[in-house]
Simulated assay, not measured.
Amino acid sequence: MATERTEYLYDPEARHAFPDERLNQVLPELLDDPEVTAYLEAQNVNPVMRMGYNDHGTKHIEIVRNRALRLYELLKADNVVFNGAREQGLDEADEPVILALAATLHDIGHVVHREDHPYYSIPLAADLLDSFLDRFYGTAERIRVKSEVLHAILCHHTPETPLTREAGVIRVADALDMEHGRSRIPYEEGGRGINTLSSQAIRNVGLDPGEDRPVLVEIEMVNAAGVYQVDNLLKAKLRDSMIEDHVRIVAINRKSDDNLVERIEL
């Protein structure tokens, strides 16, 4: 039975599109875990308050987690095979669990520093996972789930190439948090770097079934500054993600006062 927090998982209209019983057991406890919650709040201090970057806290994590699970849902609906859990001898039901855990913990290394934060995230996430996963898995399964989560965390923002589709989904979902709300804090405090300005230029990101590919990402921009988010960040993360052949990206400049960009397709 779905929990009362099913809305955190994926589109409520299609929430039974894939096996979710295990995810529905794990995710509510993850969301309520006091140590995880403390990290999500603390990890925003270095990037936002001290360095002027975009949001990397609780809201960012919620968006990345939702979009990772939405990507997973759309890919699974088109029978795209995920290899991470399967190659570890885990169940299909563990695939979205790996995604939810990796999405939630991928940025905790920011408590150490913004630079090289994925590498700092690994030992911090490993400690959290040891205690958290013990509630749901035996020793062997816990280690295998932990391994896949750590791989996805490492590959979300590093030169290391994802070796699983689970890791690729996290990499792409991280880049899909690009709307104007993400830059709210640094923008209001005077930040005008390219990350902040380009986020301000993007009004909406939609993930829907595509006609020629399982996933259609539609990005609505209000000026050409949003191209930085699409071409420099999202395009780079989609490359070699193991899902690049299954995703079509369309970015449209709805407010064409500058007349510089009307439409971009990847």
Rank of each mutant, 00 (worst) to 15 (best):
G210A: 01
T58L: 04
E220A: 13
D258Q: 12
T3M: 05
L23I: 01
H16C: 02
L150C: 00
I108A: 01
L40V: 04
D177G: 11
Y8V: 03
I264F: 11
I252P: 04
Y10F: 10
K59M: 09
A68C: 08
T139H: 12
R184L: 14
L124Y: 11
L197I: 15
Y120C: 10
G181S: 10
A14P: 00
N259Q: 13
D55Q: 06
L133P: 06
V230E: 07
D94T: 11
R67K: 15
D55L: 10
A236W: 08
D127P: 01
A152W: 00
H113K: 14
V261G: 03
P123L: 09
I243A: 11
A175T: 01
E211S: 11
V215M: 13
M51K: 12
P47S: 04
H117I: 13
A38S: 14
D32A: 14
P186H: 06
Y119C: 00
R184G: 01
G206P: 01
H56V: 08
P47G: 03
D107E: 03
R248Q: 15
L128F: 15
A103T: 08
R135H: 09
R67E: 01
M1D: 12
V45Y: 13
A152K: 00
Q88C: 07
A42R: 15
G210L: 04
N223Q: 09
I153W: 08
F82A: 07
F136Y: 15
D20R: 14
S183N: 10
Q88H: 08
H106A: 03
V222C: 08
S256N: 15
A17V: 10
T58M: 05
S147Y: 11
T6E: 09
H16P: 00
R65G: 08
L74D: 01
I185P: 00
T3N: 10
A173N: 11
V111L: 07
I170S: 03
R114W: 13
I122W: 05
P96A: 06
L207D: 03
I243F: 07
D177F: 13
L234E: 06
Y8I: 01
R67F: 00
P28W: 04
L197M: 15
V36Y: 04
C155Q: 00
D127R: 15
E41G: 02
G193K: 13
Y72E: 05
I264S: 02
I194Q: 15
Q200Y: 07
D91G: 00
E189S: 13
E179C: 12
S147G: 03
D107V: 03
A102N: 03
R50K: 14
P96S: 04
E160M: 14
C155D: 01
L69R: 00
K59Y: 08
D11K: 03
R203G: 10
N253I: 02
R15Q: 10
A102I: 04
V222N: 07
L233D: 08
E41H: 13
L31A: 12
D212G: 04
L124K: 08
N195F: 12
A100I: 10
